[in-house]
Design a protein around this nucleic acid. Structure first.
Lengths: 238, 238
DNA sequence: CGACAAGTTGATGTTACTCAAAAGTGGTGG
DNA sequence: CCACCACTTTTGAGTAACATCAACTTGTCG
């Protein structure tokens, strides 16, 4: 069962933020100490209440989470996905006009995100970059839902998750942990779980992609990327 | 032809920002002076190049704009809509990791957004609130595209635009300017223009909503809101 | 073993897309 | 004023993608 772990490696939080902006030794130390304050939240539990007054921002150390919107009739849409290393609840302004809460998709462990004193320095910069990335992924999610077929949505999402997760977890880029059920995947992609299931089988039969047993195995990265490339924004990208 | 104008009333920029946070007299003066520097961009032209180094942030004084993603095969998705009073290109961090450009949907006039010196004060707060609101609308857009039918998407969007536009333009909340073509509306809603057309006709026949000739007329706000209400977010939940 | 969640399958229904063309609209120049 | 053009809106017929409903199977864990 050598399943790739969904845990951030030792020092991973610092590592991920260090990828976004250079950090002082003292900032790294701050992050290491924050880790001693880590806490757990069980799957399906609320991490941050919606419309909360920012409590304190956190770093997701292990496990996966998301922001969701639930309709009265039971439909639900996952707005954004949070993977290990991501920040939760960083608010740029003093009072949040309209935040969206976060809930745990699997058991998760978190630690408080240390706040830089004067809003300057590498750490603040890393937080800001992280926020910008998050916005970028929101845009990508909109384009996925608005203009891609089920088939393309899955390909695009798996490539995105691969990018986001493999760097942080130090897994090979073509094989990484994926602890979500097909039902959850459906809520993320705006589809039904039945249709997700059939589409995943299609990918398997074609030898492109294997999503099974908590792991994603990208079998033909080139062809998968081509699928999605033909929709790649002309528009430049960071 | 008493069509509601799409222009911000005199002092409108200050008015809109003043709705978000209290402004000093001097801040209001700054905004008034910025208006003297206003400039125009024609419909379909780029306002902010994608991946730009932030140039300078602007305030949209009149006309409508959007952020788009265009696929290689010609499909396009409007990511977010910008209406008079909205800010363009406010970047919280020193270097944008991944911005998305903006293009004009109609002829627009803009003016530079005055920058508060030390990043404090009512103006900075108003900018931050505006950014948070923008994020809120992104979430709403995702929920629309992911989990609503064409019929619901249109109802929800028209209600959103009504909220955003009528306050700023001082138009009655049930009748406001809407200068977008059905094709553009389709790109915003992730539909085809043909289907948008048929759905708009349905709304008209039902006496709920009339989108025609550059104006939206909400004929039955209560029933329209009900349509969308049944999908109103309870928000967080497992 | 039994129970419960997750994944899988089949049959059927509906929403929304595609293609193609007609009718309306507004602006421009002769 | 009319003819012409480009663009937008509208209409119809056929189709494809995805949803729905309802089992049935597999796996996991106590």
């Amino acid at each position: 069962m050598a399943e790739p772990s969904s845990d951030l490696p030792e020092g991973g939080a610092a590592a991920r933020l260090g990828m976004l902006a250079p950090l002082d030794p003292e900032e790294r130390h701050l992050l290491d100490r924050a880790r001693d304050l880590k806490y757990q939240v069980a799957a399906h539990q609320i991490i941050v209440e919606d419309g909360c007054p920012v409590s304190s921002p956190s770093i997701l150390l292990s496990g996966w989470a998301c922001r969701t919107r639930v309709f009265l009739d039971g439909r639900r849409q996952i707005l954004s996905l949070l993977v290990p290393g991501d920040l939760i609840g960083i608010c740029r302004q003093s009072r949040p006009v309209a935040a969206t809460g976060a809930i745990a998709l699997t058991d998760v462990t978190l630690c408080p995100a240390p706040m830089p004193e004067h809003g300057k320095g590498g750490l603040a910069e890393a937080y800001a970059r992280s926020g910008a990335l998050e916005e970028f992924y929101l845009f990508r999610q909109i384009a996925r839902l608005g203009r891609m077929s089920a088939y393309e949505r899955i390909a695009d999402l798996m490539l995105e998750i691969g990018e986001r997760v493999s760097a942080v977890l130090r897994t090979p880029h073509d094989r990484f942990p994926f602890p979500l059920t097909q039902e959850t995947l459906a809520d993320l992609l705006g589809l039904t779980s039945v249709h997700v299931n059939r589409t995943l089988q299609l990918f398997r039969r074609q030898g492109l992609l294997d999503v099974r047993g908590g792991t994603v195995h990208i079998r033909d990265l080139a062809r998968l990327a081509d699928l999605v490339e033909h929709r790649r924004a002309l528009v430049s990208e960071a």
